[in-house]
């Protein structure tokens, strides 16, 4: 196991601006909750930095998943012959393999070095444009790119199913009606079917979002300094505080999943077609 964890990145704690307003002191925390919680509190920025990596990885993976998954879903619904069969077979492979294995594969087998260079260049460019951000630079590295590819492609395999279901759920009649007013097949898909299907895929997407967010923790296996990896580093440092640290990390995960789920609930209500239940 240790050998697998070889390329561990050492992530320097980021000098974040301390808030001047009523922040409880470490001593106060230690007094009330004990030394172990004070340790968690002392390392709060380290953990929150990990949470930022987690969020960033979720975002890049979902984006990749959408970019690859939406066309894949469309091909599975409307495509024919080889393209359809190829997309399906790839889907079976990706859905049948544990994300852990996909991630290890992406990290050790794929030549991700080729991708990393340009990605880092783009991000550094952004960084110099937008002033130094604490998120991008320490996170990007081979592990981050490999994790994005693994989570993204796996997510694409699932997102394609969400979109396929949503596209198929839009009735045949809609297509016939669109053709009857003179639209081409492609035009009908684009202007009539897709807008309806996207709205219907919100619940499935919500589920997918939570899964990806939680599975970023598996990037632990390739040494990416996300939330769980950082927690692990912390509790190997102070072994009495194991439970406190993991509970704190779990709380952050919970707030993230719960918060975004409610947010997406709100969004789907907001953009629902009036009179159509979700």
């Amino acid at each position: 196991m240790e050998a697998l964890l070889a390329p561990v990145e050492t992530v320097a704690a980021f000098p974040l601006p301390e808030l001047a307003v009523a922040v409880p002191s470490e001593e106060a925390v230690a007094e009330v909750l004990g030394e172990d919680w004070a340790f968690v509190y002392r390392n709060r920025w380290h953990l929150l930095g990990g949470a930022a990596v987690t969020v960033a990885l979720t975002a890049t993976s979902l984006l990749l998943g959408f970019l690859a998954g939406f066309p894949a879903g469309a091909i599975e619904t409307y495509g024919s012959g080889y393209s359809r069969s190829l997309v399906r077979k790839l889907g079976v492979l990706l859905r049948g393999t544990p994300i852990l294995v996909i991630m290890i594969y992406a990290f050790f087998v794929l030549p991700i070095g080729i991708v990393v260079g340009p990605v880092v260049a783009v991000l550094e460019g952004l960084d110099s444009l937008l002033a130094p951000t604490p998120l991008a630079v320490p996170a990007v590295g081979e592990a981050f790119v490999a994790a994005t590819i693994a989570l993204g492609l796996r997510s694409a395999a699932y997102q394609s199913q969400i979109f396929r279901g949503a596209l198929a759920s839009v009735g045949e009649g809609q297509m016939r009606a669109a053709r009857s007013v003179g639209m081409s097949r492609l035009g009908a898909i684009r202007h009539v079917i897709v807008p309806q299907a996207l709205r219907r895929s919100v619940p499935g997407f919500q589920n997918e979002f939570t899964i990806v967010l939680k599975d970023t923790s598996i990037a632990f296996a390739i040494g990416l300094g996300e939330l769980l990896k950082r927690s692990n580093d912390l509790f190997t440092q102070q072994t009495t505080a194991v439970l406190e640290i993991i509970l704190a990390a779990s709380l952050i995960y919970f707030v993230l999943t719960f918060g975004t789920n409610r947010g997406l609930d709100y969004a789907s209500e907001r953009y629902a077609i009036p009179g159509e239940g979700t």
């Binding site: 939570t210 939680k214 599975d215 923790s217 598996i218 632990f220 769980l228 927690s231 692990n232 194991v242 439970l243 993991i246 509970l247 990390a249 779990s250 995960y253 919970f254 999943t257 719960f258």
Partner: peptide, 11 residues
Amino acid sequence: RGTPLLAQLFV
């Protein structure tokens, strides 16, 4: 359902 399985195993 709101927390990762791996974190649960660690706990």
